[in-house]
Design a binder for these strands. Sequence first.
RNA 1: GCUCCUGUAGUUCAACGGAUAGAACACGGGUUUGCGGAACCCGUGAUCUAGGUUCGAUUCCUAGCGGGAGCACCA
Length: 612
Amino acid sequence: MNKKILPAVPTDPLAILHDALVASIGFGLRKSFKSKEKIDASLFTTPPNPAMGDIAVPCFTLSKSLKTSPAVIATTLADTLNAILSDSNTFSYEKGASTASGAPISLLSRFEAAGPYLNVFLDPRGVAKLVLEATTNTHYGTRALKKKHRVVLEFVSPNTNKPLHLGHVRNGLLGESIARIMEANGHEIHRTAVINDRGVHICKSMVAYMEKGADSKTAILPTPESTHTKGDHFVGEYYVAFEKHIKKDPSWNSLAQECLQKWEEGDAKIRALWTAMNEWTLAGHQETYIRLGIRFDSFILESDIFASGRKMILDGLKKKIFKKDATGNIIAPLEKKGMPDKIVLRADGTTVYATQDIALAVTRQKELKADETFYVVMNEQNLYLKQLFTILSLMKYPWAKTLHHISYGMVHLPEGRMKSREGTSVDADNLLDALEDMAIKEVGARYDTLSREEIEERAQAIAFAAIAYYMLEVNPNSDLLYNPKESLSFQGRTGPYLLYTYARICSIVRKGDGAHALADFSHYDWISEKTIVTLLASYPSVVAQAGMETSPAIVARYLFDLAQALNDYYHHTPVIQAPTEERTARLALLYTASIILKQGLTLLCITPLEHM
RNA sequence: GCUCCUGUAGUUCAACGGAUAGAACACGGGUUUGCGGAACCCGUGAUCUAGGUUCGAUUCCUAGCGGGAGCACCA
């Protein structure tokens, strides 16, 4: 039998530290106050100033049950615990007190009361040992759940009439990053996109293509191949041409309606064109996904599901879940739930967005049996998604409560607001191209010995890191002002700065010639390394928190803090030139940091380079 | 009109109801015969207004002022 083996090495140093602290405070409370009170680790904070301590324990909540002022509690506990620490024979931590080898280690060095706070100073030697051992486990920062949570993540979901724009980039990066973070937290993710491949907007590109596409002399219709145009851009040009044309000549609008009518009737010629144009667009989108490091497990075509939605709505009407309004539209009554009613099927029997979203949710749940489903959709749709989820619960689907909306804000550019319907959208490919061009110039200017290929490879990585980090560093909720130039800078909180730090650490580790192997570092003080050690210790909890809050920004900010600490460190502390003991210990730390940096960047969809 | 979101340095972003509100950019000053100076260090600078809740409010509540979005058979 395959016995389940627990990891020999603890994987969350911060949790172990907290356990040790909870245990010792519990001990102190018993000894000094004869109280069986326990302190909750979630109360722990970080002191405003590192000189004050590494972990702060606020004593406000204890003061109620002990009927003593918080300041007195802090002072008393500090005295009691310091006395115990100095006499190691009388005290052992109740939990997490030993390493894999079973040897006791000291994690806490001393306590200090500061007003109502009990501040704790960690022992850098103990923590370093914990961290270095934990990170030799290749799964550091990831959790394995006994039973995998099945999560469906729906994101991007584009139309097939134009290329992806800047908003899709944020959506895609958010979705992919959240997927990776959830995977690190032990979930099984199904990535899916819903393709809006039918409706009048698609017909608009088709009409323009039929009316204007053909060569005036040869009457031959162009294709993406014949014009050497990326498929989605090719189709998008006709969509733009349509919008332009109707400003002068609105008659095309009725052509588009006719086209839609024919499509609904299954007109062979229209269907064939529709299929071709959709394929062009989707092939183009696929190229952009690859550029963005996104992959999907499934694509759902709206044209495949909208008809089944109609049946579900009519069924719901029979069951009196829905009702007809004065004009004959079928509506879901939501006023009692504090929302406006929602039309779910038009009077003439044609479907609306909600029709297919209902059908989609039902069939998808049937097939994938998700424990939870997340929709990554812009905050403009907050009300709509709330309505959708409520409708599904009115339809008595028990899984309706497992649906969640990950809402994100609009992306602006310094020049002003961008929105696709107003024709001011910024095309994703063009933007990426522009960023790469800018990066190529920089790299080329700095490293003239590189080949053209190498320059392009680095520039590509830098450009992508720039946009990905910039988009993910902000909380999903808020609107975002994307400044391309700033994102490419190596100064400040940027992707390139993180790449630079990673490459530079790699360079130092390389020069160390593999001398970073784990050794017994217990006699080394780790004082100048303490900030980094503490940051590395908190990585697993950062990943866990980012997963709980579905927020890559938490990882992004953590990585910047780490990078900053590392830059500071190797600027002031010699590594390669240091005496053997220090050298080995420092290399071990940098090597560990490089692994965490790389892992963290991967969670943000960024692949770091070892040379740049 | 109704609903939701939002208001923090000049700018872009942080801060489970906790200590002196953190960063980054910009601005001013400094660091290299050192492992990659695309770096590092120092400095100036902010909670929209008025009440309330409590030991304590950027955070919660109320009102006002400002910004964004939604409330259509639009996708």
